[in-house]
């Protein structure tokens, strides 16, 4: 996965709390067999409403989602993260995230930055008054900048380190590939192989 240090992109104010993963991507999209192309399923039900924020051309190319509290609740589907990232989002800002969603995000390289709800309100107002404005998210200093607003955010140290280094779970393990190879050399010869017989 790509390393993340700082990101600047159009902010999308999503004034909704308790956005669950079924709203992020409805179950009918789960039958697919790929990892990509889920952007059309993102917020599929809401996008049918022409007043929905992503249907506004000023926000359509957004990459920083500014959401209400308790984002990502419900089923543990990893597709929710794929849909957001396939669409082009790199960061979600919220005052609270569901645990599993946050875990899945960290593994895929989507930054979930936790801000105070007051700061979320300020950023919403700013983005609504100035549609299409950019938001900068700096993972090194853990701050979000939107116009004159500069707000700190929280992300746990481990996830931050992984994002800064661009390490997904597999790359993390592969840093210890030597250990794996050594272990393999010690495996008993009687262990079965699937390719025999």
């Amino acid at each position: 996965m790509d390393a993340f240090t700082t990101h600047t992109g159009i902010g999308v104010p999503l004034r909704r709390s308790n956005v669950d993963t079924d709203q992020i991507i409805p179950a009918v999209y789960l039958k697919r067999v790929t990892r990509t192309g889920f952007e059309d399923g993102l917020f599929a039900a809401w996008r049918k409403d022409e007043t929905f924020i992503l249907n506004n051309p000023s926000y359509a190319a957004g990459s920083v989602l500014v959401a209400g509290s308790d984002f990502g609740t419900g089923s543990s589907r990893e597709h929710a993260v794929w849909a957001l990232m396939n669409y082009g989002f790199r960061v979600v800002l919220s005052s609270r995230f569901a645990d599993i969603f946050r875990g899945n995000s960290g593994k895929q390289g989507l930054l979930t930055a936790q801000l105070a709800q007051d700061d979320i309100e300020l950023i919403w107002k700013y983005l609504e008054n100035e549609p299409g404005s950019a938001v900068t998210v700096d993972l090194v200093s853990r701050t979000v900048t939107a116009g004159d607003i500069v707000a700190p955010f929280e992300v746990d140290d481990y996830t931050r380190w992984r994002l800064l280094e661009g390490l997904d779970d597999i790359s993390l393990t592969l840093r210890h590939e030597q250990d794996v190879t050594e272990f393999e050399s010690r495996r008993p010869a009687y262990k079965p192989s699937t390719t025999v017989a």
Partner: peptide, 14 residues
Amino acid sequence: TSEVEHVLATQTLP
């Protein structure tokens, strides 16, 4: 599924 990918790639799991 992401663990399936992890095992395919590394034959290990944390």
